[in-house]
Simulated scan of single mutants.
Amino acid sequence: MIDQAFAHSFANEWIEAWNNHDLEQVLSHYADDFEMHSPVIAQIAGEPSGMLQGKQAVGAYWSQALQLLPDLQFELITVLAGVSSITLYYRGALDRLAAEVFHFGPDGKVVKAFAHYGV
Rank of each mutant, 00 (worst) to 15 (best):
K55P: 01
N20F: 00
R91G: 00
V119P: 02
D71N: 11
A31E: 15
A99V: 00
P70L: 00
M1K: 06
V26L: 05
G118I: 00
E35V: 13
Y61W: 10
L88Y: 09
G82D: 10
W14D: 11
A65N: 06
D95H: 03
A31C: 14
D107G: 06
I86C: 05
Y89T: 12
T87L: 02
S85N: 11
L80K: 04
K109C: 05
H21S: 07
A93T: 04
Q25S: 11
H8E: 09
G105Y: 04
D107F: 07
K112D: 15
D22M: 08
V110M: 08
V111M: 07
T87V: 15
A7K: 02
H103I: 03
I44F: 08
S49H: 13
Q73N: 10
G105N: 01
D107I: 08
F34S: 07
A7S: 09
G82P: 05
W62V: 10
H37C: 10
F34Q: 03
E100L: 08
Y89L: 15
A42R: 14
S38K: 06
L68H: 05
F10Q: 03
H21E: 02
F34Y: 13
Y61N: 05
R91P: 00
Q64D: 14
S9I: 01
H103D: 09
A81F: 00
A65I: 03
F34N: 03
D107V: 09
A60R: 13
F102S: 06
Y89V: 15
A93W: 06
L76S: 10
P106N: 15
K109F: 08
F102R: 02
L52E: 14
Q56M: 13
R96I: 09
P106E: 15
N12Y: 07
V111S: 05
L66Q: 06
A99T: 01
F74N: 10
G59T: 11
V119M: 09
V79Y: 02
S63I: 07
Y89H: 15
F6T: 07
M51Q: 06
Q43M: 14
D107W: 08
A11R: 01
V58P: 02
V40M: 03
F34H: 10
E75G: 03
G92L: 02
G50R: 04
R91T: 00
G59P: 12
D32H: 10
G108E: 15
Y89S: 15
V58A: 08
A65P: 01
Y90L: 01
L76C: 09
Q56H: 13
V119G: 11
L72S: 09
N20I: 00
Y90T: 00
